Computed example of a mutant assay.
Amino acid sequence: MKTFFTRTATALVFVAVMLGGILYSSFTFFLLFFLINFFALQEYFKLIRNIDPEYAGISGWHRNGILIASCALIMAFTGEHFISAANLSLGFLGWWLAVIFLLVMPIGEILLSKEFSLKNMGYSALGLIYITLSLGLLIHLCLNYDSIRFTPTATGTGPGWLIPLLLIIFIWINDTMAYIVGSLIGRTPFAPTISPKKTIEGTLGGMILAVAAAGVYGHYWGQQWLSLQHWLALATIAAVFGTIGDLLESKLKRMAGVKDSGRIMPGHGGFMDRFDSLLLAAPFAWLYVHLFAMI
């Protein structure tokens, strides 16, 4: 019972923080995912250290430099959205910091580390792609598509946070419905060596219900911003790539020999545990919107 109340209280706080950060302003949206990126990347590095102990021997220059470069890249994705009185944008500052650290860091690693390892540099680069690029594209989707009419049939311009928020909701519906359907009728294991509790029936049920929910939203409310087929496509991306993202993080945790990526949220694990599906779904949603849903 204590565990149930702990999980419930944590979930309520989590939802309140997420909604507040996403909806309050464009800056709080940026700040929210800036912090998620920072902590999720540190959890990723911890998983890699458990998978390959050699990574624990990287220099402090490497460890801190990759975090600074990651934060700079997140800033870079804001573009010209936040500009100071001196006409200096956060995006411009981020690009320059990212370029400097990504160019200088390998040199410092060669000079300062006892044993230079391209493999360790690869682990760090993968973290930037897996986490920072994904969340950066989500920020770009919010800040730089704000108030853009996406399709010729749109009757209005939607807020920038609309697609990111609904992408998260579609992922949540998929995960929740997959769990419920799997608990009721799930019989066939989906990926037994990675996630033994996942079933084919539950996975398909979650995907179908997520797309159905998107269809209802798109038909009754969403067509003023996007055509129905785009909402269905975004829900499909959220369900398919969100499921793959969940399996990918589960695989990393199994390789690392841990149950959760972190302990920041009692009863719910770490940042990667909460956003594993979004990390893979966000880049594909960005690509879809950029290539097919804009005019």
Rank of each mutant, 00 (worst) to 15 (best):
C71Q: 14
F82R: 01
R49E: 00
L41D: 03
C71M: 05
A76G: 05
G65M: 02
S84D: 11
N64T: 03
G57T: 03
N64V: 07
L90S: 00
N50P: 05
I51L: 02
Q42F: 15
N50D: 14
L73E: 03
L90M: 09
A69R: 02
A86I: 14
D52H: 01
S70C: 10
G79T: 04
N64W: 04
L67G: 03
A72I: 08
A86M: 13
E54W: 02
K46C: 10
E80S: 14
S59D: 01
C71K: 05
I83Y: 11
D52R: 11
N87E: 15
H81F: 13
T78N: 01
R49Y: 06
I66D: 01
P53V: 12
I48Q: 01
L67Q: 00
C71Y: 07
F45M: 10
I48V: 05
G57R: 08
N64M: 09
L47N: 07
G57N: 15
I74Q: 02
M75L: 12
L73P: 00
I51T: 07
A72V: 08
A56P: 06
Y44V: 00
G60P: 09
Y44P: 11
R49K: 10
T78M: 05
E80M: 01
L67W: 10
M75Q: 02
F77K: 06
L90E: 12
I66E: 04
I83S: 02
I48E: 09
S84M: 08
E54P: 08
I68S: 02
Y44K: 04
Y44C: 09
R49D: 09
G79H: 08
L88R: 07
W61H: 15
L73W: 07
R63E: 08
I66G: 03
D52Q: 10
I66P: 01
I66K: 04
I51G: 03
H62N: 01
E80N: 06
G60T: 15
H62I: 03
I48M: 11
G65F: 07
H81E: 06
D52C: 08
L90Q: 02
I74F: 02
G60C: 14
F82A: 00
D52W: 10
N64I: 07
H62T: 13
Q42H: 14
E43G: 12
N50T: 07
H81V: 07
L41K: 00
S89A: 01
F77W: 03
E54F: 04
I83W: 12
A69N: 07
E54V: 00
I74T: 11
G65P: 01
A72C: 00
I51S: 05
N50L: 12
A40L: 07
R63G: 05
P53R: 03
F45L: 13
A76H: 11
I83T: 12
A85S: 15
A69Y: 03
Y55K: 03
A69I: 05
C71H: 12
I66M: 14
I74Y: 02
R63T: 07
L67M: 10
S84P: 10
